[in-house]
Design a protein around this nucleic acid. Structure first.
Lengths: 142, 142
DNA sequence: TTGCGTGCAAAGGTTTTGCATGGCA
DNA sequence: TGCCATGCAAAACCTTTGCACGCAA
């Protein structure tokens, strides 16, 4: 992670939020709203600028779920990057909208298959599987 | 596929374009531009309205590639839907932007795995695998 | 003091929607 | 004639950008 030349109040706030939300998903608006009202607030533009930088540093992942909802971000935190890559996939339920984390070794096979047979290096940080989750299939849409 | 109550010139044009583009990807703007200038033109709103309907009918698939580029559509055509589901996946290269079709039985295993082990029904029509394609890895970015 | 960081507002691009008009049956 | 379809323009939405000001070092 590249260190910023300057340390600012907003940066500290954002990082504290990230730690708090580790492993969960949030949008840029979530971040802004979280600090709204308190004497410490952050402009939405600043949030986007920081998140963009953190994404390019590989510390935060950005998922484009749907063109009409805001992008989802996730803080990868202290997890070893390679480890996270192998174990961490996302499923998005098209019915209830849930974004599900899936840690499954089986799926690591997909990566090696795509790599060996098709010369394609999968990026699990950005790939989202769409479909219908178990709950919704049982007829329990929210 | 649900039949429209009325048959219109624009509808005919759109369908002819779809047949022409079967198996390829296009955006709403591509459709509009294709008929621009000719005495037969289609308004962008009409294009979106038709595509939206065709998507919900399952005849056309919509892929949200990136939040800042237009959505990609694809006409599934006469292919049996079940057959297409088994054989047809998409890879998106994050370097050169190529959208690659991948027909691979191996990947059908993903679906059954997700179904059996996680109760999740994958929708291959919407799922896109992100990563880096073989050409770009060999250092041949466009 | 230097120059990066911030916030506001405006711009940017795609997609949707309201409304009056046009065209199919 | 009765409605649906169309097209234009405006709206809606998220995200980026320009610019002046503020603040860290």
């Amino acid at each position: 992670m590249i260190k910023s030349p300057y340390k600012t109040r907003q940066q500290e706030l954002l990082l504290s939020y990230l730690r708090e939300m580790q492993g969960k998903h949030f949008t840029a608006e979530d971040v802004r709203a979280h600090f709204e009202g308190k004497q410490s607030s952050i402009g939405i533009a600043t949030v986007y600028r920081h998140l963009e930088k953190l994404v390019s540093d590989g510390v935060v992942t950005k998922y484009v779920i749907d063109e009409h909802s805001a992008a989802c971000y996730e803080y990868l935190g202290n997890v070893c990057k390679d480890e996270a890559q192998e174990q961490h996939f996302h499923l998005k339920c098209e019915m209830c909208g849930a974004l599900i984390h899936l840690a499954c070794d089986e799926l690591a096979l997909i990566r090696s298959h795509l790599q060996k047979e098709h010369g394609f290096t999968l990026n699990p940080f950005r790939t989202v599987f769409y479909g219908v989750c178990a709950a919704c299939q049982k007829g329990e849409p929210k």
